[in-house]
């Protein structure tokens, strides 16, 4: 424990800015992954344990597309779309066979795929650490805010993610598709009786989750090193986020991600060895106080 350095950091604006920006980066990437996870759970009532692997695939797709095209815009879109397709196929061909079964059976199918995805990445891209490098557009001097260093890419990442978050919220709350999705979350058999093909709807929700996770992977590729198995830690963290925010709540996922991002960065200053412990402690407290999470609705 190192409370004096935490106090020192909180006393210096430069340190606060640096920690807050890196907390925001962690939080934003986490939000994109957790939003898909929480959406899938909200509608299908299954926990997609492969979601971390989707994030990893997104990052590796990004690496390849960027090497081929050199355009970061194409990279973002291509990686997100490719991962969405993986999500769609995974749902239609495999996950849809274990709906309504024991949750452990779903866990088992997902675990099998995590192993397969990780190993495939190892075979295709190699087991060693990879890095994509910063796109040339962002290779400009960093900004200084109150003495803290802020790379321009960080601003881009935060801006894009917030925009996506708002767009996602609008899609779910304001469009016909969103209304169908919410209705299916509430009463799938009624929605199906009204003539909606719920099979396709479930596939689309998985594709949307994959899209978000793949996009997160592509956003992370310039600032994180890529390894097979990089999905595991973000999976665990996005669980914490969805549980804290409330399973099924997009707003909850956003708030939860920011909280976890900040706990991680400030925790690593004050409690270097216990940063993870802090997150779990927070999760325990929320679950005991309000099992449905901060923004979760009571489920019948």
């Amino acid at each position: 424990m190192d409370l004096s350095s935490l106090a020192n950091c909180l006393g210096s604006p430069a340190c606060v800015v640096t920690q807050v920006t890196s907390g925001l980066i962690i939080g934003m990437l986490l939000f994109l992954v957790a939003a898909g996870l929480t959406l899938i759970f909200g509608v299908l009532k299954v926990i997609n344990f492969t979601h971390g692997a989707f994030y990893m695939l997104g990052a590796y797709f990004a690496l390849t597309i960027f090497q081929l095209t050199g355009s970061y815009v194409a990279t973002l879109l291509g990686a997100a779309l490719a991962t969405a397709l993986v999500g769609l196929a995974f749902e239609r061909f495999f996950m849809s066979r274990v709906y309504g079964q024991n949750i452990l059976m779903q866990l088992l199918v997902c675990y099998g795929f995590i192993l397969i995805f990780d190993d495939s990445v190892k075979i295709i891209w190699g087991p060693e650490f990879k890095s994509m490098g910063m796109p040339s557009t962002f290779q400009v001097p960093p900004l200084f805010i109150a003495g803290g260093v802020v790379p321009p890419f960080y601003l881009f990442l935060v801006g894009v993610t917030v925009a996506i978050g708002i767009a996602l919220w609008l899609v779910i709350e304001r469009t016909r598709f969103g209304k169908t999705v919410r209705a299916a979350a509430h009463n799938p058999s009624m929605v199906s009786a009204l003539g909606v093909n719920t099979g396709i709807l479930y596939g689309l929700v998985f594709a949307l989750g994959g899209l978000l996770a793949g996009f997160a992977g592509a956003l992370a590729a310039p600032v994180r090193s890529l390894t097979p198995g990089m999905g595991f830690s973000i999976l665990i963290e996005s669980f914490i986020v969805t549980v804290i925010g409330g399973m099924g709540s997009i707003v909850g996922a956003f708030v939860g991600s920011l909280l976890i991002g900040l706990i991680r960065t400030f925790g690593s200053v004050g409690f270097p060895l216990f940063t993870e412990g802090l997150m779990y402690l927070f999760m325990v407290v929320v679950l005991i106080a309000k099992p449905t999470g901060l923004f979760g609705k009571e489920v019948a």
Partner: peptide, 23 residues
């Protein structure tokens, strides 16, 4: 807690304990 919340709370306790061991 019920079902999935029970599962997550046990997971959280386990990971908390794991962090304590590391710490």
């Amino acid at each position: 807690l019920k079902e999935i919340y029970f599962a997550f709370l046990t997971l959280a306790f386990q990971m908390f304990l794991h962090s304590l061991i590391i710490l």
